[in-house]
Every structure is written in structure tokens, then in C-alpha cells.
Design a protein around this nucleic acid. Sequence first.
DNA 1: AAATATAATTGATATTTGTCATTTTTTGAT
DNA 2: ATCAAAAAATGACAAATATCAATTATATTT
Lengths: 259, 259
Amino acid sequence: MSTENENTVVPLSKRKIACKDCSLFQICLPVGINGEELERLEQIIQRRRPVKRGDHLYHGGDPFRSIYAVRSGSIKSYVPTESGNEQVTGFHLPGELLGLDAINNRIHPCSAKALETTSVCEIPYDQFELLSNELPVLHRQLIMLMSKEIFEEETHTLLLGKKSAEERLAAYLFSISSRYHRRGFSASEFYLSMSRNDIGNYLGLAVETVSRMFTRFQEDGLLSVERKHIIIHDLERLKLMAGAVPGKCGEQFFCLGSS
Amino acid sequence: MSTENENTVVPLSKRKIACKDCSLFQICLPVGINGEELERLEQIIQRRRPVKRGDHLYHGGDPFRSIYAVRSGSIKSYVPTESGNEQVTGFHLPGELLGLDAINNRIHPCSAKALETTSVCEIPYDQFELLSNELPVLHRQLIMLMSKEIFEEETHTLLLGKKSAEERLAAYLFSISSRYHRRGFSASEFYLSMSRNDIGNYLGLAVETVSRMFTRFQEDGLLSVERKHIIIHDLERLKLMAGAVPGKCGEQFFCLGSS
DNA sequence: AAATATAATTGATATTTGTCATTTTTTGAT
DNA sequence: ATCAAAAAATGACAAATATCAATTATATTT
């Protein structure tokens, strides 16, 4: 949560932090981008001042202008429905993108709300498109990330379609753990930035069911939970409880959370 | 079901049917591709002999080589799970793509099985990538289609997370109807190529529940169903029964099924 | 710091949908 | 055409989870 100077949109070049110095570098841009290409990409990336908890990056229905990468903090994506309800469609942790569902229609189908003070990189899509004409590697990278997103949505479909409440929460916690771990944080101890309500919504469960499951997990000695602070005591067991994983995993051909 | 000469892989150039003559042209390639570009794309597209009902296009775990577009017939995508179960993740009707979830890992996370005799266009991905270096419009088009797929997965998440059995089946039938309609077929009368089992699996419901819902819909005069043959008597009511749609729809900013 | 609002937990009960068992219908094979 | 196997429909019942209500804990505001 480094509070750099907090102004409105400032070109990256005017700031100290460049992609190549960013801790998310290898997550955002894992493959074959060279120094010169990176520099040109950086020139179009905008770093905005951090958004505060509860603020929206965009609302469902807004015109699409940019895709975003989370630098720090976390974002919740949700589909607002007519009845005033919402369906949470995902949580975005550092190094993850959002807004990819809006490219086709040029309108955001989802809203994106900060769960805590959050910094994002904004990539204006028109400029990205122009630059990609010269640097096909950018398109290629985006396609990879979108493919990954599609796969992850399928994993979530599997969860919603086939898993019990217990399996859902276990899978959820395991996923969060893996993603933090990948970012260099502890896999066994972390703070959940989202409410029980959001978790339940995302997992297709009532809040009360989520609460009860947390209680049960704690009674079983699987983890300690105190409000949003989670300590996993047995990651292996958590993984087992999460049940089915696409492709039978078992190291057969790939694993959730691998890049 | 035009039974052309049924051999193994034959370059498109050797055949009579070109993309520009294909009835799916505007669905596969809706935007800004000119004649010359199209011709170069056609040169890499392979038309294989139709796959028979029950045959697989690929299995989960297979190395990724191509993406596919359905020309006629239908394909079921499913995630095989360790327990021998499966989770159906989607049905692909004419004009729709599959295999996009495998680009990132270069391994198919899903299996794809023909529900009836089905013709597909195969687009070898390496060649597509090479060609895209010269024709960025191809990448752009793929990104659009992937964005749309991500959006559709979110719609499915909304269905699995928030809807009752009745709403699920109504939403499903409305989706199928819209997709056929878009392809120029009747919106109110069609044959379902998938079993009740597959439908239930896809919707996160037991087969029996699907059966009962069909019966109820018929008793309500909403539709006539005879095995796989469906006649919708009141499309508007079906749409209403389907409930929540991303973005409040109501023509506010977009509608399911619009391109 | 007190007061108020919000979030989380817990218990009791209701409801939807799943499971099991059976019958009927349809499809495919010999 | 007959038989066997698979798919679909229907009924009875069970179970998981949602809903409702109440309590407790935690944040937020003044």
C-alpha cells in the first residue's frame, strides 16, 4: 500500500514504477516480450490513483474503454440483475485482469467494485489495439490470458454444478490460497477481503451456509478463522475436500493455479 | 446434412465450399475482413469429414492443436472428473467455436463429443498464429469471440448461482431458441440434440427434475414437447420465466443473443 | 467514546430438489 | 420384426440447503 503521489491519471513515464520493476511483471507478461516492446506498452498504460473500498472501476452498462490489471488490493466483479440482486462472478487479486468480458460488446456487462483500497493499471483498449498491430505478441498474450479466464470459468461452472456446500468453500479457500501463494504471499495464512455475503453469492450458497461451513471447518481443525483472518492448518486436506478438479489433475496433465 | 465426399482431411482449396459461400460466414467472421485476407485464412482452414454421433473431436488431456467451428450438427463440451462423472460446460451449435479454453495451457481441459453427425472447420492454431502476425484482424476477431464466450460463461454462472429449476430450463430453452433463430431457423420449433441427462448436467439439475419441468411446461401450455421435438407456444412468456438477464437487459444496453 | 448500522453467527423450520424405485417409451442391434 | 438396452417419465421419500428469526460481534459515524 505504498502511497505514491495521488493525483488523477498520470502517464507512467512520469512515475517511478515501470512494468519491468513491478512485482507483477511475470504474471502480467509471462512470455516473450522484449525490452523495447515493453517500453512501448508502458507508454500507453495509465496508473490511476488508488480506488477506495466501495468505489467502482466501472458499472454494468458503462461503455468499455479499458481493461485493468490489479496491482494491489482486490476487486469484485458482479452482474447486477433487474431485481436489484447481484451475482458475483469473480474476485480479482493482484496480477489479475478484469474487463475482458466487455471487449465484444464494447459495454461492460459487469460492475467492478473495490473490496479495499486498490491500485490498478489501466490499459486503454483502443491504444492497445493500435499498438498490437505492430506488436502481435501483445494480442497473443491477451489471447492466452483470455483462454485462461475461460478455463477458470469452466472450473467455476464445475463447482456450481456439481459440488456440495463443503466442497465449494474448500475449493474457494484453496483457490485464494494458491493465488496468494503464486504472488509470493503465504499459502496458509491470509486475510479475505470479501464479506461472507460475497463469498456465498459467488459460491451459490446462502450466507448462513457459508458461516456454518467456516464453523465446521474450524471445529474439524482444518483451519482457524477469525472474521476475515484465515489460517489453514492442513492445506493438503483442504485440497482433497475441494473435490473434483478439471482433468482429474493428479498431476496428470495440469493443476489449478499453475501458470 | 449435405453429404459431400467423405474423406479424411482435405485442404479447403480442393473443395467447393469456401468461407465466403458458407452460410455461417457472417457469424464466424462478422467484422472487417476483406477478400484477400479471407482467402489466406481459407488456405489454412481444414474441413474434415463429418464426425459421427458419439465421436470425440478431442478428449480432456489431449494436446491442443486446433480450434474448431461447428458447420452443422452439434457438439457437447464437458469436463471429465476423476470420479468418472462429467460436468457439461457447453453445447456448440452451428457457427460457434470450441477449444478456446485450451490455448493457454496447450492442453484441452474439456472433451468434445458430437451429439449427432457433425461437420466442423478445423483451424490449426500454429498456422493461425503465423497468419495473424500479418493480419492482425484475425487476432482481433478471435479476441472478440473469446470476450463473448467469457460473457456467456458469466451468464451461465448467473444461472447456476441464482436460478430455480424452472428458470434454468426456461433460460436454456430460450437460449437454444435464440441461437437457432440467429442461424435462420425457427425460434419456436426445433429438435434438441442433447439428452435430458446432458441438459440436467449442464443446468446443475437431476434428470428427473428436468423431466418434471418439461411436463409442467407442457401442462401450462407454454410448449409442446415430444421427446426431443420442441414447439414453443409462447416465447415471450418463456423469456420472462427465464428471469434475470445480465445487465437488466430490457433493451437497456444489450440483449442475450444479439451479435 | 457512545451510538448506530452492518456483518456474522446460530438455531429452528420450510422448501426445493435430489435420490431411489418403478414403469413406460424409444432406440439400436441381431 | 423381435429383443435388449438405453432414455425418459412418474411417484414416494430423504436430504441438503434456504429461509426466517434472533443474537452477538464488529465497523462506522458523530
